[in-house]
C-alpha cells in the first residue's frame, strides 16, 4: 500500500499530473456550470415572480421536471439531445456539424440542471425581501430595472447564500457524474489511473480526499462571504 503511494506523485510512475489536470478540469466545469445556473436562476426567479402566466407555467415545468429526474438520466438526455439539436440547427443553416468539447458540453448540461435548483433558491430569497423595500425604491422614482438591480438583488443575497453555497457543493460533486459519459474530469482520470495500475483502493481513496478537500475549502470561503453579507444583521 505505502510503496504504491508514489503512484500519486508527479514524477512518472506517478499519476499526480493527470490527477491535477483532472481536478483543474473539474473546477472549470463546476465554476462554469454554477455561473450558468446562477444566470438561469436569476432570470428564472424573476420570471416566476413577475412574468406573464405562460412563462410562469414553463418555468414551473422546467424546475419540477429537472428536480424529479435523476441527474445521470438528465446528463445523458441533455448531452445527446443537446448535441443532436445543435448539429441539426447548424446543418439547416448550412454550416458544418460541430464537435462540442467535453468542457463546454459539461458546463451546458450541468448548468441547465443547476438552473432549476438556483431558480427555486433565488425565488425563495426574493420573496423573503420585505415588500416595502422594493415599494420604497419605486416611490423614489426608480424604474423596475433599477429597483431590481439596486434593491431586490442586493437585498436577497443574504437570504440566498446558504442555499447557493449548498448548490455549489452539489455541482462540484455532480461533475463526477460526467465520468459516465466519459468527459475529461477528475473522476474519469481517477478511473483510468485505477484501471491501468490495478490500485483501485488507492486511487479512489485519493479521489475522495481531493473532493473532500475541495468541499472543506469551499465551506470556509462561503462562510466568509456569508459573514460579510450578514454584517449588521441579526443572527438567523
Amino acid at each position: 500500500m505505502f510503496e504504491s503511494l508514489q503512484l500519486l506523485w508527479i514524477e512518472t510512475p506517478g499519476r499526480g499530473l493527470s490527477l491535477l489536470a483532472g481536478l483543474v478540469s473539474t473546477i472549470q466545469i463546476a465554476v462554469g456550470a454554477y455561473a450558468l445556473g446562477l444566470i438561469i436562476g436569476l432570470f428564472g426567479a424573476l420570471g416566476k415572480i413577475n412574468g406573464p402566466a405562460p412563462l410562469k407555467w414553463l418555468l414551473e415545468i422546467y424546475t419540477t421536471l429537472i428536480r424529479a429526474v435523476p441527474e445521470l438520466v438528465l446528463i445523458l438526455l441533455l448531452y445527446y439531445a443537446g448535441t443532436a439539436a445543435l448539429n441539426n440547427m447548424l446543418e439547416s443553416f448550412g454550416y458544418e456539424t460541430a464537435n462540442i468539447s467535453g468542457l463546454v458540453a459539461g458546463i451546458l448540461v450541468l448548468g441547465f440542471v443547476q438552473g432549476a435548483y438556483s431558480t427555486e433558491v433565488i425565488r425563495a430569497a426574493m420573496l423573503a425581501v420585505p415588500k416595502g423595500q422594493v415599494e420604497a425604491a419605486q416611490a423614489f422614482g426608480m424604474s423596475r430595472r433599477q429597483s431590481v438591480l439596486r434593491i431586490l438583488i442586493p437585498a436577497m443575497i443574504p437570504f440566498a447564500l446558504p442555499g447557493l453555497s449548498n448548490l455549489w457543493l452539489i455541482v462540484t460533486k455532480d461533475t463526477a457524474l460526467l465520468a459516465v459519459v466519459g468527459f475529461f474530469e477528475l473522476a474519469t482520470t481517477v478511473r483510468e489511473s485505477a484501471a491501468s495500475t490495478q490500485k483501485y483502493l488507492l486511487f479512489y481513496l485519493a479521489a475522495a480526499a481531493i473532493y473532500l478537500t475541495l468541499t472543506l475549502v469551499s465551506n470556509v470561503i462561503f462562510r466568509r462571504i456569508e459573514n460579510r453579507y450578514r454584517r449588521g444583521q441579526a443572527a438567523v
Binding site: L169, K173, A179, F203, Y204, A207, Y211
Partner: peptide
C-alpha cells in the same frame, strides 16, 4: 457525516465496489 457529504456518491460507490471489493 462530513466525509460522506463532502465526496461524490459515485466515488464512494466505486471505492467500495472496486476498491474495497478488490481486497
Amino acid at each position: 457525516c462530513t466525509t460522506i457529504r463532502g465526496t461524490p456518491l459515485l466515488i464512494q460507490l466505486w471505492l467500495i465496489y472496486y476498491g474495497v471489493g478488490s481486497l
